[in-house]
Simulated assay, not measured.
Amino acid sequence: MKLALFSHCAIDTITINNQNYEQIGGAACYCGITAREFKFDVELFTKFGPDFPKQYLTDYKINFQNAESEKKTTKFRITIDGSDRTLNLENQCDLIEYDQINADCHLVSPIFHEISDDVFSKIKNDSKFLLVDPQGFLRQIDSKNNVILQKTNLDLSGVNAIKINPEEGKQIVDGTHDEMMLALQKKGIDYVLLTDKINVSLLVKNKIYSITLPNKQVRDTTGIGDIFCSAFCCTMIKENDFLWALCFAGGAAQAALESQNIGLQKIPRKGTIETNASYFYNLLKFRDL
C-alpha cells in the first residue's frame, strides 16, 4: 500500500526547560516514518535545502523526487511548556512541486504555506482518500516571526478527513467544538477529528466517538499531531474501519508521549501502537448529535 505525503521537511530547535535540542522534523518526517511503521510505501513531496540530511529519509526507504532546493530547509524555533508550545519561523524553503501519483491515500500536512492553492486542488482531484491537517494553511507570522493563526477561506471540497485542534478550527468555522465539527462535516468531510490535548473526538454521520489519553507528564509534543494523522490514515486504508483508525491514532499519540523522547525518536513501534489501540477500543465512548 502506498501513501502520498505532501509537507516540508524541517530543522527544529526545540527548547525544553531552557535546554536546546536541534532536530530534523516537519510533518514530512513524522508522518512518513510513522507510515513506514505501518508497512506503507511512502512517496514524499517536499522541499529541503543542502543543510538537510537527506540520507535520513533514504535510510527509512522514504521515496522523494525533485525535493532538493538551493534555499535552506524550513526552520522553526520551538519552545515547549507542558502541553503548550510556541513557534518562531527562522527560514522558509521553496514551494512543493506537484507530480501526479497513484496512491492508496494522500496526506496533506503543510507546516508553513508550502502547498499552493493550485497544487492543493490537483491533489484533491487525484486522491482516493485524502486526510488534511490544515495547520500550515492557517499559520502566519507577526513582526517578530512568531507563528500565529489567522482565519482563512480554505477550500475543503474533495477532502475525506480532517484533523484540527480548537484553535485551528476557529480559523475555518465558528461555534462550539460540536458546532465546528458539524460545520466541517457540512463541507463534505466524512471524518472530522478534533484533538483537544488529551481529549480526542471523531464525528462520523450523526455520532461523535471519543477517547481520552491518560493524563501523564508530557515532555515534547512536537510531531504528535503528525504521528496521529499518519496512524489514522494508514489504519483507515488497511482496515476500512474508522473506530479502529481512531484507536490506532490515539494509541500512536499516547505511545509517542509516553516515550518521553525528543523529536523523531518518539515515533513509536507498531507493536506498542497496537497494544494501546486495543486498550482505547475497549474504552470508546459515543453520543448522538
Rank of each mutant, 00 (worst) to 15 (best):
residue 3 L to C: 02
residue 4 A to S: 14
residue 5 L to R: 02
residue 6 F to P: 14
residue 7 S to Y: 10
residue 17 N to A: 07
residue 17 N to K: 04
residue 21 Y to H: 02
residue 22 E to A: 01
residue 28 A to V: 00
residue 29 C to T: 04
residue 29 C to V: 04
residue 34 T to S: 10
residue 35 A to G: 08
residue 37 E to H: 07
residue 41 D to V: 00
residue 50 P to M: 12
residue 55 Q to M: 06
residue 57 L to A: 09
residue 65 Q to C: 09
residue 65 Q to P: 02
residue 68 E to D: 08
residue 70 E to Y: 12
residue 70 E to I: 14
residue 74 T to N: 03
residue 76 F to C: 12
residue 76 F to A: 11
residue 79 T to P: 00
residue 80 I to W: 00
residue 82 G to E: 10
residue 87 L to E: 00
residue 87 L to H: 00
residue 88 N to E: 13
residue 89 L to G: 03
residue 90 E to C: 13
residue 92 Q to I: 07
residue 96 I to C: 05
residue 102 N to H: 06
residue 111 I to A: 06
residue 112 F to K: 00
residue 112 F to H: 13
residue 114 E to L: 06
residue 121 S to N: 13
residue 122 K to Q: 14
residue 123 I to V: 14
residue 126 D to E: 15
residue 129 F to N: 03
residue 131 L to I: 07
residue 134 P to T: 09
residue 135 Q to M: 12
residue 139 R to H: 06
residue 141 I to F: 04
residue 142 D to V: 00
residue 148 I to H: 02
residue 153 N to F: 01
residue 158 G to M: 02
residue 159 V to L: 01
residue 161 A to T: 00
residue 161 A to N: 01
residue 162 I to Y: 04
residue 164 I to N: 02
residue 164 I to W: 05
residue 167 E to Y: 11
residue 171 Q to T: 13
residue 174 D to V: 07
residue 175 G to K: 05
residue 177 H to V: 08
residue 177 H to T: 08
residue 182 L to G: 01
residue 190 D to A: 12
residue 191 Y to D: 03
residue 192 V to H: 11
residue 198 I to N: 14
residue 200 V to R: 04
residue 202 L to A: 08
residue 204 V to I: 14
residue 204 V to E: 11
residue 204 V to G: 03
residue 206 N to F: 04
residue 211 I to S: 04
residue 213 L to C: 05
residue 228 F to V: 00
residue 228 F to P: 00
residue 228 F to R: 00
residue 229 C to T: 11
residue 236 M to N: 01
residue 239 E to N: 10
residue 239 E to I: 01
residue 239 E to F: 07
residue 245 A to I: 03
residue 248 F to T: 06
residue 249 A to P: 04
residue 251 G to P: 11
residue 256 A to W: 07
residue 258 E to S: 11
residue 260 Q to M: 14
residue 261 N to A: 14
residue 268 P to G: 10
residue 282 N to D: 15
residue 283 L to A: 11
residue 285 K to I: 06
residue 286 F to K: 15
residue 287 R to P: 05
residue 289 L to C: 13
